[in-house]
Simulated scan of single mutants.
Amino acid sequence: MEQKLTVELQADETPGQALARTVTSPECLSASVLTICQNIDQSQITEMVGELKQQTAAIRADDLSRAESMLIAQAHTLDGLFARLASLALTTGDLDAMERYMRLAFKSQSQARATLQTLGELKTPKQIAFVRQANIGNQVQVNNDSGASRARARKNKKAPNELLEVEHGERLDTRATGSAGGVDPAMAALETEHRPKKSGRKGRIRA
């Protein structure tokens, strides 16, 4: 039977654009695969697309019942594969075949566990783990700031000493001595100009 796909033309959209939008939609791509896997006549692809759009709308409305049913069904399927492959491994007389079967069995077991874990996270989101991660990030940021602050403090502590040595080096250097000794040159000039004359009293004392 000829395949029939209904294409809805939206406003300000050409027929070619409408066809491209429809065939590339997730619902249409999934319907194409499902019709082949389930051996459904491709003339029913429009109904398949419509059903998938309804399930997509339910997810957008926070209705996760379909997703929960899908995950639990997949977990049962993977668990059945594990049991089947493990049975084949135990009943075969070929060591290499047994190793291959057991490897596939353990992969099925791991996938079943991961599927159930996803189902649990879907029903109970890990909000606490998200908060813990945010706290760790803040702690790392604070530690980085503390390290930078300590580095700046050491630099600022060293800077005044260096500045003091440059600007006031003469006063800090106790080894350097002036030629005038302990007398200020300005004061020495005043002493010479205003020196009092010798008095007779001073001569009498010398006698």
Results as ranks from 00 to 15, higher is better:
1 M>G: 11
1 M>L: 08
2 E>K: 09
2 E>R: 08
5 L>S: 01
7 V>P: 01
11 A>H: 12
13 E>M: 08
15 P>H: 07
20 A>I: 07
22 T>I: 04
24 T>L: 12
27 E>H: 08
27 E>A: 15
29 L>P: 05
31 A>M: 07
33 V>Y: 09
33 V>A: 14
34 L>R: 13
37 C>F: 14
38 Q>V: 06
40 I>S: 14
41 D>S: 14
42 Q>P: 07
42 Q>T: 12
43 S>V: 11
44 Q>V: 03
46 T>F: 05
46 T>P: 05
50 G>R: 15
50 G>A: 15
51 E>K: 14
51 E>C: 09
52 L>A: 12
53 K>N: 10
53 K>G: 05
54 Q>Y: 03
54 Q>R: 09
57 A>T: 04
57 A>R: 06
58 A>E: 11
60 R>N: 10
60 R>P: 02
60 R>S: 08
61 A>R: 00
63 D>K: 01
68 E>R: 00
68 E>F: 02
70 M>N: 09
71 L>I: 00
72 I>T: 08
73 A>R: 07
73 A>M: 12
74 Q>N: 11
76 H>R: 15
76 H>C: 11
77 T>D: 14
77 T>N: 12
78 L>K: 15
78 L>M: 15
79 D>C: 13
80 G>P: 05
81 L>V: 10
85 L>T: 05
86 A>I: 01
97 A>T: 09
98 M>P: 05
98 M>R: 01
99 E>C: 11
99 E>T: 12
100 R>G: 11
102 M>I: 01
103 R>D: 13
104 L>A: 15
106 F>V: 07
107 K>H: 08
108 S>I: 00
109 Q>I: 00
109 Q>A: 05
111 Q>D: 13
112 A>R: 09
114 A>N: 15
115 T>H: 03
115 T>G: 04
117 Q>H: 12
122 L>Q: 01
125 P>C: 01
125 P>E: 02
129 A>W: 02
130 F>H: 08
130 F>W: 04
132 R>G: 03
133 Q>R: 02
133 Q>N: 03
135 N>F: 08
137 G>R: 13
137 G>N: 13
138 N>E: 14
138 N>A: 12
138 N>H: 11
140 V>D: 12
141 Q>N: 14
142 V>W: 09
142 V>H: 09
143 N>D: 13
145 D>R: 03
146 S>Y: 13
147 G>S: 14
149 S>F: 06
151 A>G: 04
151 A>M: 08
153 A>K: 11
157 K>E: 03
159 A>L: 02
161 N>H: 13
164 L>W: 05
164 L>F: 06
165 E>T: 06
166 V>T: 10
166 V>Y: 07
167 E>M: 06
169 G>E: 00
170 E>R: 00
170 E>D: 08
173 D>N: 01
175 R>H: 06
176 A>Q: 05
177 T>E: 02
178 G>N: 02
178 G>Q: 02
179 S>G: 04
181 G>Y: 00
181 G>N: 01
182 G>T: 10
183 V>D: 01
184 D>A: 00
189 A>P: 05
192 T>N: 10
193 E>S: 10
196 P>D: 06
197 K>N: 10
197 K>F: 11
197 K>E: 13
199 S>P: 04
199 S>Q: 10
202 K>V: 08
204 R>A: 06
206 R>S: 15
206 R>Q: 15
